[in-house]
Design a protein around this nucleic acid. Structure first.
Lengths: 209, 209
DNA sequence: GCATTATGTTTACAGTGATAACATGTCCGA
DNA sequence: TCGGACATGTTATCACTGTAAACATAATGC
């Protein structure tokens, strides 16, 4: 993640070549295409075409398609984390705020289906939990902090991890089922989720009834 | 697996021009490839190749690739439902059995990653909830019955639907996160889920805490 | 027996990701 | 200022994909 940001950031404008800053332009075009519905069928050539450059020019900036997608999914992760943080703040923090971050997750997914898919399929090894990146860890860090503050202390680290897992899986599952058309995409459902009470009781070894 | 005695020989197709039951053979080959790891990159040509037939022969039995995939995902759905039913029985029914069907869902997903993906991405419009098919509705029906028996009666139909949604999303989310490498695929995690207590209290409008 | 139909093959086309060879623009040092 | 060195973009090409059209062969029905 050396340099990216928008093309505005380039501190050395003289470095502009044929295309000013093709790398950023490609990423923008890619994001655009992903947001414009164009589902999993995003192609390198399409991106290049949109920027107005030859197909193989892409390879001067990305070793392969996966590398481009990886950068895109990092951008998406950041955007998602921002949306979640905003939802948290808007809800006034606390348990309510936490649930709001979950709803924001779902809303982001259904609002950006293609990008969300790419994000999940192309996250680097270890995924969100990895510590290779710093910036896109924001979402996970937020989740962790929330769980810590909501889970009973006796649960310990294991309980925290379990809580993170289950709550993430909950919203992720809802998101994916909606994206895949298995359940209807409805704001009503999201609201129902939001207003329902989520409990994280860590009872790993209870015979349960 | 109806294989006629004459093993298809491409170089001397004096006898093997007409394959006994190509449609079934194609489906079997497709399932095989999907189970053999060959991820989302399953191609029509690969399937045809494996059966020993020309690429376009497929189009005598399926209008296009999506049609083939759709059939495969129906098969997968049946298999998954069987696994769940078996888990239910093995656990002795009840709440424990219900949770066992969830664990079976996850285990099936991680055991058949490619097929599971195809299943979710290619389910017919409306998905599992649709009533177009009868057989592959088994899984959903099982889920529904379980939820009905576990959810308080005051919850009503809405509560049942909500319970189905949330519990399905829970296991589906865990499955997908594992498949996408976002969380480690570990039997330990599945067991933790299995032994944790799942509660379905319907509190859609409670101010929470 | 022969025409019809079902099934499989060959050929072909547009699209994809990717590599290699080539062309051009920009920068840096003499 | 000049001239290489390097960064960037292009063209040509390959192997692969899904799919359509035309053709070939086997099974079936009159």
């Amino acid at each position: 993640m050396s340099d990216n940001a928008n093309s505005v950031n380039m501190t050395a404008p003289s470095r502009g070549y044929h295309h000013g800053d093709l790398r950023a332009a490609l990423l923008d075009a890619g994001l655009d295409l992903l947001k414009s519905g164009s589902a999993e069928t995003l192609s390198l050539r399409e991106v290049a075409r949109r920027v107005g450059v030859s197909p193989t020019a892409v390879y001067r900036h990305f070793p392969d398609k996966a590398a481009l997608l990886k950068e895109l999914c990092i951008r998406g992760a950041l955007e998602l984390a921002q949306a979640q943080a905003q939802a948290m703040k808007a809800a006034g923090g606390g348990r309510k705020g936490f649930v709001a971050t979950g709803a924001a997750y779902i809303r982001y997914a259904v609002a950006n289906p293609a990008l969300f898919r790419i994000m999940m399929a192309n996250m680097p090894p270890g995924g969100f939990f990895s510590s290779d990146f710093s910036d896109d860890q924001v979402g996970i860090k937020m989740l962790r902090d929330n769980i810590i503050s909501l889970v009973p202390k006796e649960a310990g680290e294991k309980g925290v991890l379990f809580g993170m897992l289950m709550s993430w899986a909950q919203v992720h599952g809802l998101s994916m089922l909606m994206l895949d058309g298995q359940i209807p995409v409805s704001e009503e459902t999201i609201k129902a989720f939001e207003s329902s009470q989520m409990e994280f009781r860590f009872v790993p070894d209870q015979p349960s009834e």
